[in-house]
Design a protein around this nucleic acid. Structure first.
Lengths: 156, 156
DNA sequence: GGTAAAATCACCCAAAAGTATGAGTTAATT
DNA sequence: AATTAACTCATACTTTTGGGTGATTTTACC
């Protein structure tokens, strides 16, 4: 408890003690001062220098260290999870929103009938979409479309 | 040139000027000192405090800020670069070498006819292979097979 | 040498996929 | 008001795919 307090306020205590000692020293020097009157400036200068040093020392002890944060990035191999959709490709191929939707469902392995059910449209509509999709993507089958779409980051 | 010198030794010059001013102040106070003799301790204390402050200020200005380095490790997700074939899955599903070959070609978007040409076998053979493949993989179409195969790391 | 798995192929049939064409509706743009 | 693009649907037709069955050959293993 007491030790902790001493440790915490060590600089302050030391400063106090130093000040007290200096004052005693001054008192003692005062006697001499009467005798050797003309060294007063030197005396004051000495005090100034001494306490400047003390100030520096205190500053060194007290200043909070600046915290510099170094972030080390460790690479961790992971399954593909991040997927950044390639809008440029979509624009370049001229794929519509609906076509992209169909493409995604095709990639999930759904049949045209299932896709039609999922999107609440007829089978023929899905066929039309996929046809146009294949035409735009310059492929001939759903499997090729999926393969190419993955390469072009149109689907995860 | 001169300006540069001044900038470089600014603290030193300021310290010198302060010291000079203080000495003038002391000289002036000295006259009063004769009259009011007993405030010498206060006077010396004042100098001490003042120069302690000056010292602290100098230290603040001159010393390089203490740097405490805190290392934070952050994990960065990196996509798997290379494909590691999952032999366990192949064994578990009981896929033969030929079936795996067909699976890969299917994943590349080839039709059964094209696969047959590539492997120098008949279309019927490829149909048999893909049929058994789908059966073993418990899927109903080539698209589903590709999707599942990628999930199971059977193909890149 | 016999057995089992793998690979090959054929035939048939049904379902799904894909092509071609035409057409109606809606929403956005000019 | 006219145009365009996107979305919708239908019909007809061809191709591909996938399931089922059966058979032959090759390869590997006990």
């Amino acid at each position: 408890m007491i030790r902790e307090f001493i440790n915490k306020h060590k600089p302050t205590i030391l400063y106090g003690i130093s000040l007290a000692l200096l004052l005693f020293l001054l008192k003692w020097l005062e006697l001499r001062f009467i005798i050797i009157n003309h060294i007063f400036e030197i005396y004051a200068g000495a005090i100034a220098l001494l306490f400047t040093g003390l100030g520096i020392w205190i500053a060194m002890k007290l200043t909070k260290p600046k915290v510099e944060t170094v972030v080390i990035e460790r690479e961790v191999l992971v399954e593909k999870k991040h997927f950044q959709f390639n809008e440029q490709q979509q624009a370049q191929l001229g794929l519509s929103k609906r076509e992209l939707e169909v493409l995604n469902l095709i990639a999930e392995g759904l049949s045209n009938q299932e896709i039609a059910g999922q999107l609440f449209v007829s089978l023929n509509t899905i066929k039309t979409h996929s046809s146009k999709l294949f035409e735009k993507m310059e492929v001939k089958s759903r499997t090729q479309a999926v393969e190419k779409a993955k390469r072009l980051s149109l689907i995860p």
